[in-house]
Design a protein around this nucleic acid. Structure first.
Length: 200
DNA sequence: GCAGAGATTCTCT
DNA sequence: GAGAATCTCTGCC
């Protein structure tokens, strides 16, 4: 599919990614799901982003690539997958935090070693989909084993604070986390959502 | 060369 | 709700 929707505005791209069908082909096996939860990271001006202030390291090097690049990093022994947006001057991207499983659920269960909670968290979905840093970091979407295509459309998109960045000062309040309202395949909040009551 | 942190997950209380 | 597991990279000695 055309990825140009990721070229200009990272927040818009994050919302547009909700509902997209995400497919990986690893070890000859296809696994896929619909994206239900994402977070946007706005690079240089976002204290919670790896590239805040233009910080460029071996780890976040892939954020300085063009839109459509896949950025996989490791932390606490888990992998997290991001889709890079914009251009090499703007190290921004979207963290894929959860998907609704579609194809290859039996393989996901095998990879995860359990039958529930396969893809409702960033480290969980990469494990279920077989995404690994040494295999997939720096690849481009739709040019390799990781693909996105048109999927479903969210009825309502919820905005909330991002997860796991409690010490990032003013950035903790940015509503850069987007979820499909009502979908059970989203990560469990440890922090109360900013708009929990549902008012606009 | 080593301490410490990090966009996490799981288990136990 | 707290704490451990677990891995890579940065920063500082």
């Amino acid at each position: 599919m055309d990825l140009s929707f990721m070229e200009d505005d990272t927040l818009a791209a994050a919302k547009a990614l909700l509902g997209k069908k995400l497919t990986t082909i690893v070890d000859g096996t296809t696994t896929s799901g619909y994206i239900t939860e994402v977070e946007a990271y706005l690079g240089i001006h976002d204290k919670a982003a790896h590239a805040f202030g233009g910080r460029r390291t071996k780890k976040n090097e892939m954020m300085f690539r063009d839109y459509g690049t896949i950025y996989v990093y490791t932390m606490h022994g888990h992998h997290c997958m991001n889709f890079i947006t914009r251009d090499q001057e703007s190290p921004e991207g979207v963290l894929i935090r959860a998907i609704e499983p579609l194809e290859g659920i039996d393989v996901m269960q095998e990879r995860r070693g359990r039958t529930d909670h396969l893809t409702d968290g960033p480290g969980k979905l990469t494990k279920s989909l077989g995404v690994k840093r040494d295999l997939h970091n720096g690849l481009k979407l739709n040019e390799g084993p990781i693909l996105i295509e048109a999927g479903r459309s969210p009825e309502v998109i919820l905005e909330s604070k991002r997860i796991g960045i409690a010490n990032k000062e003013e950035a903790v309040d940015y509503l850069y986390r987007f979820t499909v309202k009502g979908n059970p395949y989203v990560s469990k909040d440890r922090v109360k959502p900013a708009q929990q009551l549902g008012w606009l």
